[in-house]
């Protein structure tokens, strides 16, 4: 499980003066779901195009399943499925005809293609509409058709660019479930998005992009540890000021921020509510409220970019 299926070294792309991707070192292991995270224009799509060999890097190399996308683009594209953001199909053709065309481009023979199409359309929940023109499809259906296309060509790696953008919450939720299904099939997934809670819901690891650089990378827990110091937040209301030092001394607490009038916000690397309660009460404090929440990727993201702006 530890072999790298996608590996880039010093990957760089410049358009004139603009550096879209800057010295990117990325490593994806087989079977994981990796989230490329960042604001629009931070270089996510350019990175994807370079991995597919659709754009030539200015410097650096990429390797996909051991192949160089520049020298062996056919080998790479045979094994990698790509779902572009707002994927398009030929509207006047039916879903089946669209997939048949892809199958023929992939060298899958007709009988095999028809069998596969039945199978993946069933799985994507599109079996009833397979003979309808794609022009009548909703956005969510097109996305599922795109995912079906990846399954049909038996891609080992799925690259999904902003797959849930513009979907209604229910369709997005359903689609995320399908992405988890890809993982269950052993397909490595590279997912780009700026919708953080969705990335958090499906990704094993994330990489945070900013101005073409991957500024942070790791599991969600590791990221929140690094940026926020911990992935738990505890709200304490004790109706007494001056408890900072006491609270900061609780094992596991990383940072204490007094809010106002006896309220404190604790960031902690683990759940230490009972210890907090014991100490507050032990000091004679009046513990009125003790709430607990896990931080989300939104917090990590917001804090990171806040700090980055502060530094700039």
């Amino acid at each position: 499980m530890n072999e790298a299926v996608i590996e880039t070294q010093g990957l760089t792309k410049r358009y004139g003066d603009l550096t879209a991707v800057d010295d990117l070192n990325l490593r994806l292991q087989a079977g994981e779901v990796f989230g490329l995270l960042g604001p629009n224009g931070s270089g996510k799509t350019t990175t994807i195009l370079m991995i597919l060999g659709l754009t030539e890097p200015t410097a650096g190399t990429a390797r996909v399943l051991g192949y160089d996308p520049l020298r062996h683009p056919l080998q790479v594209k045979r094994r990698v499925g790509y779902l572009p953001d707002s994927v398009g199909f030929y509207d006047e053709l039916t879903a089946r005809e669209n997939l048949r065309y892809t199958a023929r481009l992939n060298g899958i023979d007709r009988a095999e293609a028809d069998r596969l199409i039945e199978q993946v359309m069933e799985r994507m929940g599109l079996r009833d509409v397979v003979d309808r023109p794609v022009g009548t499809f909703s956005r969510g259906m097109r996305q599922r058709l795109g995912l079906g296309e990846l399954l049909m060509k038996r891609a080992q790696i799925a690259i999904l660019d902003e797959p849930t953008i513009g979907l209604d919450p229910e369709a997005a939720h359903e689609f995320l479930g399908m992405i988890r299904g890809l993982k269950a099939d052993g397909i490595t997934v590279l997912l780009s998005s700026h919708l953080l809670h969705q990335v958090q819901a499906v990704c094993d690891r994330v990489g945070l992009f900013r101005k073409g650089k991957m500024v942070l990378e790791g599991t969600f827990e590791a990221l929140s540890e690094r940026v926020l110091g911990g992935s738990y937040r505890i709200n304490v209301e004790a109706r007494r000021d001056g408890l900072e030092r006491l609270l900061a001394a609780v094992p596991g607490v990383v940072r204490v921020t007094p809010v106002r009038g006896g309220r404190y916000l604790l960031e902690a690397s683990r759940d230490c509510r009972s210890e907090v309660a014991r100490r507050v009460v032990g000091e004679g404090g009046e513990l009125l409220e003790l709430t607990f929440e896990r931080v989300s990727l939104d917090d990590v993201y917001a804090r990171y970019f806040q700090e980055a702006r502060g530094e700039a």
Binding site: L49, L54, P73, G81, Y82, V87, G88, L105, G107
Partner: peptide, 14 residues
Amino acid sequence: NRRTMSRLLAQPIY
């Protein structure tokens, strides 16, 4: 314009 180009070029063809 139909946004099919990138999907088409991502298939194993030149």
